[in-house]
């Protein structure tokens, strides 16, 4: 079942030297529960693709469909609500609210949605991510790996359909990076969440169900398409 789809997606930036095409006419679809890694050299447009797919940025051309519905019709408020309820984000720099404790950070999307937290679900996340003893700490008192775990917990606290991860292991050492990656894989599998992850690390990308390789804003390799053609 297609949960996210883009057709003829284009993103252009104006530069002093003219127009730069960060994404050049990309058409793609993502299945429910799929783990997709987007990889490619620096400046290939992989992060831009992720930001456009997750509605953080508006594309210059083409259309994005969530559950078959075009996001073009959505206004700013509706896009915010979509991001809050259906999408989760894990950033390279964690982006935790420094003023809130670990637990409060996890519940932030729930608070923004004015919902009561599903305590059983939240406790399960905390248990899976093994952050129970760090919940009352402020982010400044946590290590990089611990902060990223809190960020993952926060990203899935609202039971999203899709988890977008932009270089989630980029700021972590090798061992912690691997731990975080396996946790990401585990939670996406455990809770049936589609995981779309940008990474330039091939060893990280290889762990995904599907690898998309970008160069100059175009998809040059899609392992799923290759498998289907075989």
């Amino acid at each position: 079942m297609k949960i996210l789809e883009c057709r003829n997606l284009t993103k252009e930036y104006l530069s002093g030297d003219g127009v730069i095409k960060a994404i050049d006419d990309i058409s793609l679809s993502f299945e429910q529960g799929e783990f997709v890694a987007i990889t490619g050299p620096s400046g290939s447009g992989k992060s831009t693709l992720l930001h456009n797919l997750s509605s953080l940025e508006n594309p210059t051309g083409g259309e994005i469909f969530y559950n078959g519905e075009s996001l073009k019709k959505y206004n700013d408020n509706q896009l915010s609500i979509l991001r809050r309820r259906r999408f989760g984000f894990v950033f390279q720099s964690y982006n935790l609210v420094q003023e809130l404790t670990g637990y409060e950070n996890i519940l932030l999307p729930v608070m923004l949605d004015k919902k009561k937290p599903d305590e059983e679900y939240i406790n399960k996340i905390i248990e899976v991510l093994n952050i129970g003893d760090r919940l009352s700490h402020l982010p400044s008192a946590l290590s990089g790996g611990q902060q990223q775990r809190i960020a993952i917990a926060r990203a899935i606290a609202n039971k999203p359909s899709i988890l977008f991860a932009d270089e989630p292991t980029g700021n972590l050492d090798g061992k912690t990076g691997r731990e975080v990656l396996s946790l990401l894989k585990y939670v996406s599998h455990e809770f049936g969440i589609t995981l779309i992850m940008v990474t330039h690390d091939l060893s990280v990308a290889e762990q995904a169900d599907r690898i998309l390789t970008l160069e100059d804003g175009k998809i040059v390799r899609d392992t799923k398409a290759e498998a289907e053609s075989k």
Binding site: D76, I81, L82, F89, F91, V97, D113
Partner: peptide, 14 residues
């Protein structure tokens, strides 16, 4: 950055 991040998390303008 914090405001941008809150917007990314789905915080509306209001």
């Amino acid at each position: 950055k914090q405001i941008g991040f809150l917007r990314a998390l789905g915080t509306t303008r209001q």
